[in-house]
Design a protein around this nucleic acid. Structure first.
Lengths: 172, 172
DNA sequence: TATCTTATGTTATATCATAACAGTCAAGGC
DNA sequence: GCCTTGACTGTTATGATATAACATAAGATA
């Protein structure tokens, strides 16, 4: 199960594998090109940085790494690249954390929900079609035309639950 | 329908009535007391300010009004009162807007979803039990223990849809 | 009243984000 | 090729949001 494609495709970048960075970068490249846009060096490097990150990264964290790589060291450099990635479905903005994370499966359009672990700060992208549908119904009931949504859950991830359980056994 | 208790209880503060401010303030008072806490003047006034607001208010907007009323004029004054209200279920934080809004029905615990109108900037609290349930299922599938969630939808509210439709008729 | 606790006020600073403009580079027309 | 054009990057400057830390005041309790 830990290695099945299903569990891979929604795992956070450093909770062992989702599709390897290379594959995602290639997908990103073609996706961007098909929209008549360019995955320039800063943008590509920004996506790489997000893909290598453990959890979500703040814009200034990204900026620091970009600067170390010889790109511009001013905030707009990071924000522009990050916004580009978000607008093109290659990354997501996590509002609760004022942070950004690489999209785990950029191949297709989708609405995503995020599971934010309070213990290890990991951010996991979860399938949210059902959630989106429920939200659509609620909106419709209010006469509200929904265009997009932010869905962010806070709690504890599987790994941290397991670790805590193990710790308790050790103590007892 | 426009006057039914149901439609009232989920309307935004200035899209005509939800329960009047007085009633909500009274509810707030008793709710807070039952938790062994106090609805102090700043906190009470902060809640009033939110209740009178058209949409959600930024902390600095609230601060400005508090200062005008003779309360402290420094950010922590507003943030403390706002955080108190949020922690006690009397207000909600709208992360997408970096803003706060009074809870439309503080009488009972509930998970809320917010509908943010891009046209008039109103924020409406929608019942979200179904959305929460769907999110719970998605989380469970990932082995994630959900503790709370942010659900914020962006789109266009009923009033603005109606207004736009009317405008188009006028033009045509 | 003395004491303890909670809340408020203030100073200072951290963190997140964007406007505006200048310089650079790539792609397509000539 | 080379020039124009539009997209991209870099920089300066500033704005907006949020909190840490500590001093003072106000309520509760003994």
């Amino acid at each position: 199960m830990a290695d099945s494609p299903e569990s891979q495709s929604f795992c956070c970048p450093d909770h062992s594998g989702h599709a390897p960075a290379q594959a995602i970068l290639a997908q990103a490249e073609s996706r961007v090109k098909s929209h008549g846009l360019r995955l320039t060096p800063v943008r590509r490097r920004t996506l790489e940085i997000l893909l290598q990150a453990h959890g979500a990264l703040g814009a200034y964290d990204v900026l620091e790494q970009l600067a170390a790589d010889g790109f511009g060291a001013q905030p707009p450099v990071a924000y522009r690249a990050l916004n580009f990635l978000v607008e093109n479905g290659l990354a997501h903005r996590i509002r609760r954390l004022n942070a950004f994370t690489a999209c785990a499966h950029p191949g297709h359009d989708h609405r995503a929900a995020f599971l934010i672990c309070e213990t290890c700060e990991s951010v996991t992208e979860a399938p949210s079609d059902a959630v989106g549908a429920a939200l659509g119904v609620a909106a419709q009931d209010m006469g509200f035309a929904l265009s997009r949504a932010t869905i962010e859950a806070v709690g504890q991830c599987r790994d941290c639950i397991a670790r805590e359980t193990a710790d308790q056994r050790t103590i007892a």
